[in-house]
Design a protein around this nucleic acid. Structure first.
Length: 330
DNA sequence: ACCTGTCAAGTCTGG
DNA sequence: CCAGACTTGACAGGT
C-alpha cells in the first residue's frame, strides 16, 4: 500500500509566508474610501495566493503531493456587508498560477470550509450562508482550473437533539446543492457528534466519499473499530458521478494534545497508532493519502517521516519511497 | 519588539 | 433566554 503524507495550510519553516493574512470588518469599516478598501482586500488575497505558491514549491522540495489550502485566501469574501463585491475576476490570474503549479506537479489539493458551514442546520439563513460559503470554495477551485479531484471536506454538523432528523436534513440539503458543488464534497467523521459509522451511512446515502479522521474516531468511536468500517469507507471513494478519475481514500491523522485535553491537537503525530491502523488496512488497499493535522504542520510531517525511517531501519513493515511517501505491506 | 484582547460566521451547555 | 466555551491564526491597539 502506497501512503502519501500531506499537511495543512501553512509552513512552520518558511518565514513570512502566511497564506491567510486578513483584515477585520472593524478596520475595513473605518476606511474613508470603500473602493480603496476593496482593492486592499484584493491585494491581501494576491499576497495570500503568492505565499501559497511559495508553500507549494516548498511541498515540491519535500516531495509532498497532498496539501490543504487555507479557507482564508480572500479576507471577508462572503461577508454580508460586502455582498456587492466580487473579487474573483481580479484574482483569476493569481488563482490560475496556483492551479497551474498544482497540475504541473500532479498534486492533490483540497479545502476544509470551517465549522460555520453546516448542512444539517434547520435554519434557513444558516443553510443559505453555508451554501454561499461552499460555492465560494468551489469557485476558487474552478478559478485554479482544477477538476473534481480537488475537493472540499466538511462535517455533517450539529444534531439539535435529534441525530436521525439532523442526518436526514443533511441529506436533503446536500441533494439540493448544485452538482458542481455536490460532486466536490467529502464528508468527515467528527469528534463530538457524527461518528465514523454514522458519517459512513450518510456518505453512502449521499454518494460522497468519506474522509476518516482516526483521531476523531479515537475520541468518538461509537464502539466501532475503524478497521471494520474500512472496506465500506474505501468503496465511497469510487465516486461514479465525479467528472474526474477516482482518488485514493483520504485519512486525517493527529495525536491528542494531552490526557487533559484528548480532543486537542498535539504539536507532532505519534507514529504508533497511525502505523498500527495503516498496517491493519494495508492488505487490500492499494493506496491512501494521509493528511497530517498537527500544530507544527510541515515540521510534524518531517518528524513523522524520521520516525518511519527509524521503523524501516529496524526492520519494521515500512519502506521509504521518498521524502513524503512510504510503502506499507506488499 | 512584544503582549493581550478580539475577530464574520454556528452549536452546545449550563445557568 | 443569554453568556461562555469551543478553536485558531492573525489583527489591532497598546506598551
Amino acid at each position: 500500500m502506497i501512503v502519501r503524507f500531506g499537511f495543512v495550510a501553512m509552513s512552520m519553516q518558511l518565514e513570512n509566508a502566511s497564506p491567510s493574512r486578513t483584515m477585520t470588518m472593524a478596520s475595513f469599516a473605518k476606511l474613508a474610501d470603500r473602493e480603496a478598501g476593496l482593492r486592499r482586500l484584493e491585494r491581501l488575497a494576491e499576497e495570500n495566493l503568492g505565499n501559497t505558491l511559495r508553500l507549494l514549491k516548498h511541498c515540491k522540495y519535500m516531495d509532498v503531493k497532498v496539501f490543504r489550502f487555507t479557507s482564508k485566501f480572500i479576507p471577508l469574501a462572503t461577508h454580508e456587508a460586502l455582498a456587492d463585491w466580487s473579487p474573483y475576476e481580479a484574482l483569476a490570474p493569481a488563482f490560475a498560477e496556483v492551479g497551474d503549479f498544482v497540475k504541473e506537479q500532479g498534486m492533490r489539493v483540497s479545502f476544509h470550509p470551517d465549522h460555520f458551514t453546516v448542512l444539517s442546520t434547520p435554519r434557513e439563513d444558516v443553510l443559505r450562508h453555508s451554501t454561499k460559503d461552499l460555492d465560494h470554495h468551489v469557485r476558487m477551485l474552478e478559478l485554479m482550473g482544477l477538476d473534481e479531484r480537488a475537493t472540499c471536506n466538511i462535517h455533517i454538523g450539529g444534531t439539535y437533539g435529534d441525530k436521525a432528523a439532523a442526518g436526514e436534513r443533511f441529506l436533503r440539503h446536500f441533494a439540493g446543492l448544485d452538482g458542481r458543488i455536490r460532486r466536490r464534497l467529502t464528508l468527515e467523521n467528527d469528534d463530538k457528534t457524527f461518528n465514523a459509522a454514522e458519517t459512513l451511512v450518510i456518505s453512502e446515502a449521499a454518494g460522497a466519499p468519506m474522509v476518516l479522521d482516526i483521531h476523531h474516531h479515537a475520541v468518538n468511536s461509537g464502539g466501532e473499530r475503524a478497521e471494520a468500517l474500512w472496506p465500506r469507507i474505501m468503496r465511497t471513494w469510487q465516486r461514479p458521478e465525479a467528472n474526474a478519475p477516482p482518488l485514493p481514500p483520504k485519512i486525517h491523522a493527529s495525536s491528542p494534545k494531552s490526557a487533559n485535553d484528548p480532543r486537542g491537537h498535539a504539536d507532532y503525530v505519534e507514529p504508533g497508532p497511525l502505523l498500527d491502523f495503516l498496517v491493519a488496512i494495508a492488505d487490500g488497499t492499494p493506496a491512501v493519502d494521509v493528511m497530517i493535522e498537527a500544530k507544527r504542520k510541515d515540521e510534524a510531517l518531517l518528524k513523522l517521516m524520521d520516525d518511519l525511517r527509524a521503523v524501516s531501519a529496524a526492520g519494521g513493515p515500512v519502506r521509504i519511497v521518498d521524502g513524503a511517501t512510504v510503502e506499507i505491506g506488499s
